[in-house]
Design a protein around this nucleic acid. Sequence first.
DNA 1: CCAATGTAGGACTATTATAGTACTAGTTAG
DNA 2: CTAACTAGTACTATAATAGTCCTACATTGG
Lengths: 148, 148
Amino acid sequence: MLRLSKLADYGTQVMTYMARDHVIHSASEVAADLCIAAPTVSKILKMLVRKNLVTSMMGAKGGYVLARHPSGISIAEIIDAMDGPISITECSSNTTCDRESSCSTRSNWQGINHIILDALEKVSLAEMIAPKPQVVDVSAIRSRGIQT
Amino acid sequence: MLRLSKLADYGTQVMTYMARDHVIHSASEVAADLCIAAPTVSKILKMLVRKNLVTSMMGAKGGYVLARHPSGISIAEIIDAMDGPISITECSSNTTCDRESSCSTRSNWQGINHIILDALEKVSLAEMIAPKPQVVDVSAIRSRGIQT
DNA sequence: CCAATGTAGGACTATTATAGTACTAGTTAG
DNA sequence: CTAACTAGTACTATAATAGTCCTACATTGG
């Protein structure tokens, strides 16, 4: 469905939550405020740490903080942290049947994929918190179009 | 993973296959040429018929033909036919927990979703068949950017 | 130094979505 | 009338994903 995984959705929620104030938050605190199961939040935060989007403080009074400023973190990074590299098609070259059919379309898919990735990279966390966002100027893109 | 479903992938393959020549094709013929299981192709074609992307001819010597010119069919339509409406997030309003967290980000998601949908709508089947595609001018979009 | 609190990391399970299959009915050409 | 094909629906199996649990480790505070 060209849909984001739930984990990625949660991930952005967690990140936007943390972007609001640069205070340290425990996993359970985030879970309670966001109404997501605590272990799940914990898991998500661990994944985010691994990708250096969030820094962790161990021990009592420990918790998580955003590793960078919200303006320096893109949605694409978050999704990537949760779901791995963003790619619409598999194109895993297990083409047992290398007829002319599929391969000619692959490059087009890649182009489309690129656009999407580009859009995701341009949106930062900081823009995500903004209540009424200027964030995406769709019409500008639309007017230019894709076909030549 | 923000990935296209396999069915949608097959769907575009089938459509591009049919876009090559405006001849009538039986489901089994398409299946054989594309190396996709015959019943699956059959299923896909039926879905495409339902969305008026393909016309079917019943009876002996029957088969399927593209309903419109390839230039008038967008990738978005095909994906929509296979997977239903394209939407990144669920946002299905089952927000048992309507904290300030999630809802402020929804509008941004919708913006992003719009860009993706737009990109998909701009690519036609005709462009998909073109061997070395001019199809997407990514750089043009990139130079304009998304943030204000 | 010890206990409490919280993260790190992995393995595991259950649920859901999806792909793919099979079968029956209906339609048209010859 | 019969053969060849699509229409439609219901079913099954597989894989991806969400979510849980458990053990080990680090830090703060008494």
